[in-house]
């Protein structure tokens, strides 16, 4: 019964979320869209941190790169087709992740954190200091991508509700894809590498190849999130590549709990909503400007008292450890 519930709960949540646009509250719908996009981003990082044991501090590189890829693909006053621009943006991210992965995966631990950060910062300054993507002003996307099948318009992304549904669909798809991948022997090998890399090698696993595959998949999925974010805000600027962004997605993971996937979704929701509340001037007045201070304190408290994150809290009530072990 319990496992039944566990199976259907995600679908129930997705179903509920799908009904949200019926409330016709555009402000909260756009806020939720942001949560969904960040959930994809945080899940992509969870694959790396929670399941492969690689703590990246440069994940914004792939998020931002996809945004810029879209901005550079869009003709100035026309819509670009989503059917090819989304795969193309993901492809750019996959390629960049493959190449950087080959280099950064030669390091471990604190060095891995630093080298991933360095690559993200390099990309940041490429877009910040050159005319390629409009420098520090960024590049604009005046017309949102089109989703047409022949003459039939499947969805109009200019309408917030339809864009919301697209983000929800892609979030659910990302979750399903990762569940599937992590339930395969490939996923088990990743978990083995996280727990004891040396032993995996001694057992005959080509560890580097597995890590590179995980790193590339992770970067590609971050690309989906980056693409959607660029569509939502209508521009790509260097901020989306900055280390603040890499830090924010890590914090979402810590907040929600790593190594559970759904923890990333909860963490993204908590982070985005908290940010919204804490920076609300009507409620906090002058203090709202310093929302990051309050957020920092909150995250410290979570790290101290809930090391498994909010997902760990949910698991506590069910009496199960938060990390999904490979137990049968």
């Amino acid at each position: 019964m319990n496992s039944r519930l566990q199976q259907f709960l995600p679908w129930f949540v997705v179903g509920l979320l799908a009904l949200f646009p019926l409330l016709e509250n555009t402000f909260y719908m756009q806020l939720l869209t942001k949560v969904l996009i960040m959930a994809i981003f945080a899940m992509s990082l969870d694959l790396l941190v929670g399941y492969t044991g690689l703590v990246s501090f440069g994940h914004a590189a792939y998020f931002g790169l996809a945004g810029y890829a879209l901005a550079l693909m869009v003709p100035k006053y026309e819509a670009v087709s989503l059917w090819w621009s989304l795969p193309a943006a993901i492809g750019v991210c996959a390629l960049f992740a493959l190449v950087t992965g080959m280099l950064v995966l030669r390091t471990r631990g604190i060095y891995f954190i630093m080298v991933t950060l360095a690559f993200a910062q390099m990309l940041f300054f490429v877009f910040h200091d050159t005319k390629l993507g409009g420098g520090s002003d960024g590049a604009y996307i005046y017309v949102k991508p089109a989703m047409k099948l022949g003459d039939f318009e499947m969805a109009n992304l200019e309408k917030p509700a339809q864009f919301y549904w697209l983000a929800l669909f892609l979030m659910a798809a990302t979750y399903l894809l990762l569940r599937r991948v992590l339930g395969s022997s490939f996923g088990r090998a990743l978990l083995g590498i996280k727990v004891n890399e040396h032993r995996m090698r001694a057992l005959g696993f080509p560890v580097f190849r597995y890590q590179l595959a995980s790193f590339t998949l992770s970067g590609s999925l971050a690309g989906i999130a980056g693409y959607l974010a660029a569509v939502q805000y209508g521009f790509g600027n260097p901020e989306i590549l900055s280390w603040h962004q890499s830090g924010a997605v890590l914090m979402m993971g810590i907040l929600g709990g790593m190594g559970t996937l759904y923890g990333s979704v909860i963490g993204a929701g908590a982070f985005v909503l908290l940010q919204e509340v804490l920076s609300n001037q009507a409620w906090f007045g002058a203090a709202a400007k310093h929302w990051q201070l309050a957020m920092g304190i909150f995250i410290m408290l979570v790290a101290l008292y809930m090391p498994q994150g909010l997902a760990g809290l949910a698991q506590k009530f069910r009496g199960k450890p938060a990390t999904e072990g490979a137990d049968e």
Binding site: R180, V181, S184, S185, F186, G187, R188, A189, L191, G192, V195, M200, L203, G204, F205, A213, T323, G325, A326, D327, E328
Partner: peptide, 22 residues
């Protein structure tokens, strides 16, 4: 953190060429 079975299963898995079937 893994069960005894999973420890052995992972070891056996290393012999299969289709380990990358995701």
């Amino acid at each position: 953190p893994f069960t005894v079975f999973e420890n052995c299963r992972l070891a056996a898995q290393s012999r299969t060429p289709h380990a990358l079937k995701v």
